[in-house]
């Protein structure tokens, strides 16, 4: 029977916390970038101008249907060759996950915008708003509320996807775990602790999201 010994892991937990911090930094960067990219992609895809809707559609579909790990490798190993620039693991990861989550956020934005009743558009037009005003003042505020649950789900997915950067040596939580496992020869304890750290933090976020959703539901209409 194996004797569990968490002590070597706990005494070196600073390594893991540094990794956790980097995971959070990467998630926050990609999340804020992804939301902006997603909104623009969604507006692009919904546009009547074909030169806007076509490329937006292609970016969305390509990033949604290819594996994120392949995308990451492409940005980290491939892109520097075309652009002749240095690529750091963080930059490659931030770029990949910004566009990748942007593609998924775009579909959420689009579904939200499309779900707003025609009457809202018509009413806004009647009182003299132009397209951008309608979008900003009438449609988006309502749509964002409806999109909230899917947005939260996607953000949690994003946090889990960031573990992939360990493969290009960005010092996120998983990468630090690999280091610690090699250092302490305690992979069982290390990976168990890391799984628990992810589990607890992600569960906490889901819990908060569920609370917020309930509040939104009480404060007015929300889908489901």
């Amino acid at each position: 029977m194996y004797e569990w010994n968490f002590w070597p892991v706990l005494s070196e937990s600073g390594i893991l916390w540094a990794g956790f911090r980097n995971t959070l930094i990467l998630t926050a960067t990609a999340l804020s970038g992804g939301l902006v990219v997603g909104l623009f992609l969604a507006l692009g895809r919904l546009s009547h101008r074909r030169w806007l809707s076509l490329p937006a559609g292609i970016v969305i579909e390509v990033f949604r249907t290819t594996p994120p790990l392949v995308q990451l490798f492409w940005f980290y190993f491939g892109l520097p060759i075309v652009l002749a620039v240095e690529m750091t693991p963080f930059l490659a990861a931030a770029l990949t996950f910004t566009i990748q989550s942007g593609a998924f956020f775009a579909e959420i934005f689009r579904a939200g915008i499309v779900s707003i009743e025609k009457g809202q558009w018509e009413a806004a037009r009647v009182i003299g708003m132009n397209h951008a005003q309608m979008m900003r003042r009438i449609i988006l505020p309502q749509a964002v509320k409806r999109m909230f649950p899917s947005m939260m789900e996607r953000s949690i997915e994003l946090m889990k996807t960031t573990t992939l950067v360990a493969t290009v040596s960005y010092a996120d939580l998983l990468f630090q775990a690999n280091e610690l496992a090699q250092k302490t020869f305690r992979p069982l304890e290390v990976y168990t602790v890391v799984a628990l750290i992810y589990f607890i933090s992600i569960s906490a976020v889901s819990f908060l999201a569920a609370r917020l959703e309930k509040r939104f539901a009480r404060s007015g209409e929300i889908t489901q």
Binding site: Y2, M159, F199
Partner: peptide, 23 residues
Amino acid sequence: VEFFRNTPVLVQILWFYYALPIL
């Protein structure tokens, strides 16, 4: 369901690869 949905799949694979054999 909660456990497997709330941990990254890469961590799960590595756990099964490096930790499970020890256990």
